[in-house]
Simulated scan of single mutants.
Amino acid sequence: MNFRSWTIHNLIVALFGTLLLLGNAKGDASFDENYDVTWGNDHVLSLNQGREIRLLLDKYSGSGFTSKSFFGSGFFKMKIKLPANDSGGLVTSFYLYLNESGVHDELDFEFLGNRPGKPIELQTNVFTNGVGGREQRYHLWFDPTMDFHYYSILWNHYQIMFFVDDIPIRVFKKTLGVGYPDNAMQVVVSLWDGSDWATDGGRVKVDFNNGPFEAYFQDFNINGCVSPKRNIQCLSQDYWWNLKRYWILNSKQQRAYEHVKKTYMIYDYCKNALPTNLECH
């Protein structure tokens, strides 16, 4: 085979490979493929042929949905647009969760509503073996009620990274002597009344005269290792999120992460909480 023939042959192989990848690429999953409504059924509306879900909160009920499967590791993301208007007392949540057989692990995004003119706070938290209290809170650099943004959690055996769009805002590393979530969890999403604590320590309550309140969600694909429990298979480097490059932040991510901590973090349990027996991360 001469050089010209070899080049054409390889171009054909490459083109075929690309077409094969495109043919096998997973499209946007509909809501029903990966999730079930778990409460407030009449407050959940499917839009765009299941590619978008609206959750509603009024004086009668909130609403929420949960993944059909449990996952032992993965990259979990959701596009979210938060309720507008006066959102004081509201909580919009996107998190990983296990609470059964005496085991409670949890990785949280919680959006804490506020009065008009005041910023919505984003709170993250990590529960391991039933122990939480690791809150960090941020003011976002955009209005999360105006458009959709991605909120993501990458969880492997070495670290947990929380992202807003592609910017890391929190890192929780597996460290000797510090609890780390090792059990398979479900993805949970909800909109609910957090009047007891969510805004100004519970002093601001939900004003249902400004409701009903609506939150919108997109992208129901899940990149996770399906498992009824944390197992060795979910640590395999056959899953891209377990590759060594995801054990630490790269230099660009590290700079962005330090900028977020310096500029937008407003509360850190390591600095602002009362004395505690929790190890700081």
Score class of each variant (00 low, 15 high):
residue 167 I to D: 14
residue 168 P to D: 03
residue 162 F to I: 12
residue 168 P to F: 00
residue 145 T to Q: 10
residue 140 L to A: 10
residue 134 R to Y: 08
residue 157 H to I: 02
residue 135 E to L: 09
residue 148 F to I: 04
residue 162 F to Q: 11
residue 167 I to L: 13
residue 134 R to Q: 09
residue 140 L to I: 09
residue 152 S to G: 09
residue 133 G to P: 02
residue 134 R to A: 07
residue 149 H to N: 13
residue 162 F to P: 01
residue 133 G to A: 07
residue 142 F to W: 07
residue 135 E to Q: 11
residue 161 M to G: 10
residue 149 H to Y: 12
residue 147 D to C: 10
residue 164 V to K: 01
residue 163 F to N: 03
residue 137 R to W: 00
residue 152 S to R: 06
residue 152 S to Y: 02
residue 143 D to A: 05
residue 166 D to K: 15
residue 159 Q to V: 14
residue 145 T to P: 07
residue 150 Y to N: 12
residue 153 I to H: 01
residue 133 G to D: 06
residue 160 I to W: 00
residue 148 F to R: 03
residue 148 F to A: 02
residue 155 W to E: 03
residue 147 D to R: 14
residue 162 F to W: 12
residue 161 M to K: 14
residue 144 P to F: 00
residue 153 I to E: 01
residue 143 D to C: 06
residue 162 F to M: 13
residue 138 Y to M: 05
residue 163 F to M: 03
residue 161 M to E: 14
residue 152 S to E: 10
residue 139 H to P: 03
residue 141 W to M: 11
residue 153 I to D: 01
residue 139 H to Q: 13
residue 147 D to W: 09
residue 159 Q to C: 14
residue 151 Y to P: 00
residue 153 I to R: 01
residue 150 Y to A: 11
residue 159 Q to Y: 14
residue 145 T to M: 06
residue 145 T to H: 05
residue 134 R to W: 07
residue 154 L to H: 05
residue 163 F to C: 04
residue 166 D to R: 15
residue 164 V to R: 03
residue 152 S to K: 08
